[in-house]
């Protein structure tokens, strides 16, 4: 089904985090990134060389750069801040790079070279100790999950040069772990496993639509997929996924009803990602397995297990498809600089 290709050397190791691999689809440069402690480590294709004349191109054709998160501390020194998640968000004007950290949120242009917005905690009396979960909704709004259980919403100007804090979106009682969006729906999950579905109304406000109660076990990764096969009742069937301790659960995005449970992995699942055009889903776990599933949304949802491979002695932390059809994907592992690549021959 899939065959392991030559790995990409990431140069630095990936941290033990959830969703610790991102792919910039929109960019022809097809950049990848993962978090290494206080740095987002970016790999650009060599044709980005004109943007970074100082950077060397590696043998496998990549330019490596670190976007380091540091803030001034009390005694005039620089302190390094741990990043909990880094990802690109798709906006109307183009993509932006967002870092969710212990001390605040950093937003850059897609190359990570220009800082556009810094949202530090504590200034407005916020009791936030970390942020986690990055998504964009409607092309002009960036949503970041926070430890206080609020989603922090920012609006982005038409050309992307101005980012403005808009509001705290309530709905969770526990620290938010993951955020995903599809159409006008914003889905967020927290450390209790609660899942909340909001609708973005008129591009300005969020309306809470459904809450799916959790069971005390965090839901650390989410994927939302709009199935493009028209269902019998002539509207899109939409599903999203959460995990609890090796389990993948499938819910209806329209009403929060449980559609399926997959006993997918032996240990906690650190990342899931769905290829938009095919409904293929990749999941990775600390049990060293990467698995690929296929979802079909005809009159009712169908699920099949397509592929599994164990990457020996690697606890997997990130996974993303490299194309919308789901014919290739990349995987990262804790404490390893290797980016494993799988292709469908």
């Amino acid at each position: 089904m899939f065959a392991k290709q030559k790995s990409i050397n990431g140069q630095v190791s990936a941290s033990m985090l959830h969703n610790n691999l991102a792919v910039n689809f929109k960019s022809a440069k097809n950049s990848l990134l993962f978090v290494h402690k206080s740095a987002a480590h970016l790999l650009c294709k060599a044709d980005a060389v004109k943007d970074f004349p100082d950077c060397e191109v590696t043998a496998d054709g990549h330019i490596h750069r670190d976007v380091v998160c540091k803030v001034p501390s009390a005694n005039q020194q620089i302190s390094y801040v741990l990043i909990l998640q880094a990802d690109w968000v798709e906006l109307t004007h183009g993509n932006m790079l967002v870092l969710a950290t212990q001390k605040g949120i950093k937003m850059y242009d897609e190359l990570g070279s220009t800082l556009i917005h810094w949202h530090g905690f504590g200034a407005g009396g916020e009791s936030i100790v970390f942020t986690k979960g990055i998504a964009s909704v409607g092309g002009r709004t960036i949503c970041i999950g926070s430890s206080s259980g609020q989603i922090i919403a920012f609006s982005v100007s038409a050309r992307g040069e101005i980012v403005k804090f808009e509001e705290y979106v309530a709905g969770h009682k526990h620290s938010i772990t993951a955020v995903a969006a599809e159409g006008d729906k914003l889905v967020s999950a927290d450390e209790n496993g609660d899942i909340v579905i909001h609708r973005h109304v008129d591009g300005t406000s969020f309306k809470l639509e459904h809450t799916v109660p959790g069971r005390g076990i965090p839901c650390n990764t989410l994927a939302v997929w709009k199935n493009l096969i028209v269902a019998e009742n002539s509207y899109y069937v939409q599903i999203f996924i959460r995990y609890s301790n090796g389990e993948l659960r499938l819910y209806s995005l329209s009403n929060g009803i449980l559609l399926g449970v997959i006993d997918a992995h032996a240990l906690s699942i650190n990342a899931v990602h769905i290829a938009k055009d095919s409904g293929r889903c990749v999941s990775v776990s600390e049990d060293s397995y990467v698995r690929v599933w296929e979802f079909q949304s005809g009159s009712s949802l169908e699920v099949s297990h397509l592929f599994a491979e164990s990457i020996t002695d690697h606890q997997l932390v990130g996974a993303r498809f490299l194309d919308a059809a789901g014919t290739s994907f990349a995987v990262t592992a804790y404490d390893s600089s290797e980016i494993f690549v799988f292709n469908q021959p």
Partner: peptide
């Protein structure tokens, strides 16, 4: 890392899909 073995307390062994 052990491949296979005992899953954490409260977890199911991988291998099952249930649809509702």
């Amino acid at each position: 890392l052990p491949r296979g073995g005992t899953v954490p307390m409260g977890s199911q062994v991988p291998g099952k899909i249930v649809l509702y």
